[in-house]
């Protein structure tokens, strides 16, 4: 993580106030850097192995009430939206990989992810309850 912070600090500042939450910006920077490194190293199994599979683990991480709230929001998504966002977020697949896996156009993958995030934002709001 400090590599990401050091890079952000040394280079031109990519954060702008129009972008909103600095915390969210940092979170996504770290996650995207981790995914990029994983893909570069052709080490997908390592990241996939670090993820608990559905129903495999329930270790009480985080606030259980909030977790259930998020779970319900995801459960309420349309089937196509839910399936696509699971492949992108939980399975760390790229747009191309999802398009190939589901045999759908790239643009359809993009629009499903966008509509899924819009729906989650509408349901969950901007900040934790």
């Amino acid at each position: 993580m400090q590599d990401v912070l050091a890079r952000l600090w040394r280079g031109p500042n990519p954060y702008r106030v129009e972008r909103g939450s600095l915390g969210a910006f940092l979170t996504i920077c770290v996650r995207n850097e981790a995914l990029s490194r994983s893909r570069r190293d052709r080490n997908r199994l390592r990241i996939a192995g670090a993820m608990p599979l559905p129903g495999e683990r329930d270790d009480g991480f985080g606030d259980p009430i909030e977790r259930e709230r998020i779970a319900r929001a995801i459960a309420d998504l349309g089937d196509d939206q839910r399936e696509t966002i699971v492949l992108a977020y939980a399975r760390h697949m790229t747009l191309d990989e999802i398009a190939r896996e589901r045999a759908i156009p790239l643009g359809t993958v993009k629009s499903r992810l966008a509509s899924a995030l819009r729906a989650l934002r509408a349901t969950l709001g901007k900040d934790p309850a």
Binding site: R37, I47, M51, G55, R57, I70, R72, I74, Y89
Partner: peptide, 20 residues
Amino acid sequence: AWLAIAAAFVIGLLPSAYLL
């Protein structure tokens, strides 16, 4: 099952950060 998938979402960030 979808609630379990959502649990994987919720803890999805930290394993990614761990790669660093």
